[in-house]
Design a protein around this nucleic acid. Structure first.
Lengths: 370, 370
DNA sequence: AGATTAATTTGCGCTGTGAAAATTAAAAAT
DNA sequence: ATTTTTAATTTTCACAGCGCAAATTAATCT
């Protein structure tokens, strides 16, 4: 199994290095990872054999003395994976390459909200997509599946809570694995956005960060030393609960409520038209939400002191951009916040939740100790 | 060097196991740590040679068939260490055994607030104490030193900030090591209380916890997967800043201010007499502070979801106990907090900050990768 | 052509590990 | 009293990963 190489922490570190820095030669690797040249040679030769590394001429060093160096880089097709992101109203399935670029994707509308049926459709779509792009299932490192639920309580949206009753006891070996011809991994829906950012997005080189995920609710994730920190009850970064439900909170549902009070009734966030997004009432809501999130960032900075706070979500990108702009422009996070503000990062991958799902396999293969 | 054994993670895990469970036999170790019998034999034999493990007869298995098992446990004198805790008004120096029990201790009042002089006095005291209990410096695994400062900013107390200007650039090899005949380690004052709790106190078996340290200010620490998490700017768990300075915050300084407004002027927290601690004004302050800390716990639970929240500090133990009682008795942490409350733990070692300092060596020897 | 240079590879010894066989000391069966 | 059974522990063997130091390689420089 080529993925066995991920048990070696240096292999994982090498992949992260190449993700961050692009192509480098062996000598640079040994310096960056602080391991000996000999180790780099042995490790890279194994990875070359497995096809998760490729060697190219280093033209930048042409004309110089000494043994000509060879550049190491990640082949596009070396670490392909599939992702299935299940939501109440639709299922998104995609196949992605080493760099997180989309090789193929499909959105499947859901009519019957039955878990077996949704999984069935997802696996059929995946099989068809693989055929279309002419890739064998065994060439992928695995398939990540994400679905709502697994929370202990308070899922923000009532819809989700309803679903919970039906999908509480999903067993990966019994309910998922038989449908797919590749290793299967799954994870709580709220955390995969952070994983995508970690592996493919704007957090490739960031050690510690908190993700604020703006959707119907306000969720998020915490990454510490490049590991997703889940906490005891998987309630980490469930920021919604900090804002009392009885008052207004900076969530998509709250925006819908605010618009409804003005006679603008939309069922889904994506149904809000552009003119409403630019209307006075929305701008006012954004201003208030941004203030609340600024305060949330102060709390996060004071409790977790991350290198960066990442802003993203399935809320309209325009609104998220506005909130992000507020955060990078405000002078200080709060009254007594004398230290430099943490770095704010605009999420890059939040429009592709199935990429998040597809990043689960690599995460488990590299971070888990099974 | 006997401390080299700590480079082996299984040795560290074994020590933690024995701290938690007391004496166990090799077979139980291999099951608990999920390593092979052979590995346990080799590892334990090395540790026995180094004197950081001892073997005793297992009387509990007497009368049963099979090879009689031998119990492994930590000898009292196997992991002795020294701690120096420097405060503006005094220096506390102590020597502690494997279990964190005090072998010797001394409190040195400070007249001249000069760092070299304080270190000088501390090292003299340590030398004298070692002589008194007839222990050679080389028998200790090291000496931990903790002093205020190293913060990037906002140190809560103005006094501290004044000190900062004098002690910003302490170099361990130049300013500390020459005074001691053993390995030296140092750490930010606010975090060592959590370390003491982790190694010797109430958090021996806890994977993730947040510590709320109530002193002149409100600080704390976060422990994730039994590692102290320091964050990018060492501002982790600097909870004080969450409460705007312009309003009242649940800190010792705020109590002093409150008492002063009532005509009760005390310069130090420890000067507050018992009758004042039981007076109406203090009870009222405690009630308000407990509410604020309950809210802080909600925020911590929502952002970090730790297994436990630890309450301790150098504030009067009576007051801390009252705040702790409030937390364990309140129904829920807040309006929307539907999940079970995190476990609250009353700190056990908060009256011995020099024990905290003494736990720095073991922490660095086991967790650091130098 | 030979010297120099710098990247990479090879040879060797070390540490830590698990699987499986061997050893050990006690109780139980004969 | 001897043999068998039992369960903890140790030993043997093979292997993976690492660093050090020496060797190799393919360029440029003299």
């Amino acid at each position: 199994m080529k993925t066995d190489i991920f048990r070696n922490p240096n292999a994982v570190r090498l992949i992260e290095l190449l993700r961050e820095q692009g192509a480098v030669n062996r000598s640079a690797v040994s310096k960056a990872l602080k391991i000996s040249d000999a180790t780099v040679t042995r490790l890279t030769n194994q990875m070359l054999d497995f096809g998760i590394l490729q060697e190219t001429r280093d033209s930048s060093r042409a004309g110089l003395k000494g043994f000509p160096s060879k550049l190491l880089s990640l082949p596009r097709d070396g670490l392909m994976s599939a992702g299935v992101f299940i939501e109440p109203d639709r299922v998104q399935v995609g196949i992605f390459d080493t760099e997180g670029l989309t090789l193929s994707e499909e959105q499947i509308p859901v009519d019957v909200r039955s878990f077996p049926e949704m999984v069935q459709k997802a696996s059929e779509s995946l099989r068809a997509q693989l055929k279309k792009i002419d890739v064998a299932p065994s060439e992928l490192i695995g398939c990540g599946i994400s679905y709502p639920g697994q929370h202990t309580g308070s899922a923000g949206k009532v819809q989700k809570t309803d679903q919970l009753a039906q999908w509480p006891s999903i067993d990966i070996e019994r309910d998922l694995a038989p449908h797919f011809d590749m290793p299967i991994f799954h994870m709580n829906d709220g955390k995969v956005a952070a994983l995508a950012e970690l592996s493919y997005g704007a957090c490739k080189g960031v050690q510690n960060f908190c993700y604020i995920w703006l959707s119907y609710g306000i969720g998020g994730a915490a990454v510490i030393d490049r590991n997703l920190y889940l906490g005891e009850r998987s309630l980490v970064a469930e920021f919604g609960g900090i804002f009392p439900k009885s008052k207004s909170r900076p969530s998509g549902q709250d925006l819908l409520n605010t618009l409804k009070a003005e006679g603008l009734d939309f069922g889904k966030l994506e149904d809000i038209p552009d003119d409403v997004l630019q209307a006075e009432v929305t701008l006012k809501w954004v201003a208030r939400a941004a203030e609340q999130i600024q305060w949330l960032c102060l709390v996060i900075a004071r409790t977790m002191d991350p290198d960066a706070i990442v802003i993203g979500g399935s809320l309209s990108q325009v609104l998220i951009d506005q909130i992000y702009d507020h955060l990078i422009q405000c002078e200080t996070l709060g009254e007594d916040y004398l230290s430099p503000k943490p770095t704010f990062i605009r999420a890059e991958t939040d429009k592709k939740p199935h990429l998040g799902a597809a990043s689960i396999p690599l995460y488990y293969l590299t971070k888990q100790t099974p």
